[in-house]
């Protein structure tokens, strides 16, 4: 995969994911081992004051992970990836992941980029906010 030159201010994405489904939440529960019923059982979610099930925060983080690994290809490396969960994702929500490069450090063969990343719902509500550091070969 040919790599490009990254510069501060460059946009990353967007990656628009298919709407989150209940089946996906069950699949994620199984694949991750996080069986908290708040993600799969409406009655339980209602008991703790929600309208119904909410997605695992880690599922939204995985979406943003895809935004990053899509640009890394097989030559890039992800060094650091940290997020804060700022909102709830519900079945039916369409999540868009995006980022912006903040700083780029040029080395001999690699360029290391620090970026902001975030995820929003179809209503524009920010549900995740974070930062990542990645390195890709110099273009």
């Amino acid at each position: 995969m040919a790599h490009r030159q990254w510069n501060p201010g460059d946009g990353i994405g967007p990656l628009v994911k298919p709407s989150v489904s209940r089946t996906q939440l069950v699949m994620y529960a199984g694949a991750s081992g996080d069986f908290n019923p708040i993600h799969t059982v409406d009655e339980f979610a209602q008991k703790v004051g929600l309208d119904g099930v909410i997605a695992h925060g880690m599922l939204t983080m995985a979406f943003v992970g895809q935004l990053l690994t899509d640009l890394l290809g097989s030559e890039g490396e992800l060094h650091k990836f940290g997020v804060r969960f700022t909102g709830m994702v519900r079945p039916g929500d369409v999540i868009t992941c995006e980022g912006r490069v903040v700083e780029v450090i040029q080395e001999e063969k690699m360029q290391t980029a620090l970026c902001d990343v975030w995820a929003v719902t179809q209503n524009g509500e920010k549900v995740l906010n974070g930062q990542a550091e990645f390195a890709v070969p110099i273009a």
Binding site: H56, G57, M58, M61, E77, L78, H79, K80, F81, G82, V83, R84, F85
Partner: peptide
């Protein structure tokens, strides 16, 4: 409730 998550690779 999961508030924040950070990875170093």
């Amino acid at each position: 409730i999961h508030g924040e998550q950070y990875f170093e690779y």
